[in-house]
Amino acid sequence: MSAYLSLAAMLGLAVGGVLLAYLLHRRTAVAPGALTSLPFLSGWRPDEHALSRFEARYYPMTLLFLAFDVEMLYMYPWATVVASIGTSAIVEMFVLLGVLMTGVLWAWREGALRWT
């Protein structure tokens, strides 16, 4: 429990430190307020706001990632019991990983790892 207290203290310190940096900057900077500017577009005014429905062409890879990422939930507890459970733990885990890896190969063949 005290470990989480220390982590909370660290988070508080980080946020406090950032706020302090902003306060200090207000005193040291040439002007305290921020300059409002148009975004940098090589010297031109933007035609439209940049925040938009951006096409992330690598999204098939994100699905592949999710499959493995969920698997990681099993991986961490598994890591602590490999020694006590023994061979069956290894076989079961690596059969699952093998299936997932086959999925990666299939996705690669389908072009999920290429997007340009």
Binding site: S42, D47, H49, A50
Partner: peptide
Amino acid sequence: IGLAGGGGDDQLADPDSLDLDVLHVPL
């Protein structure tokens, strides 16, 4: 400044027919 919109003829056909935007970015 306006919102981003579709790109008309320039836009690539999207297989999933998502309504994606294009940006005009001068370099």
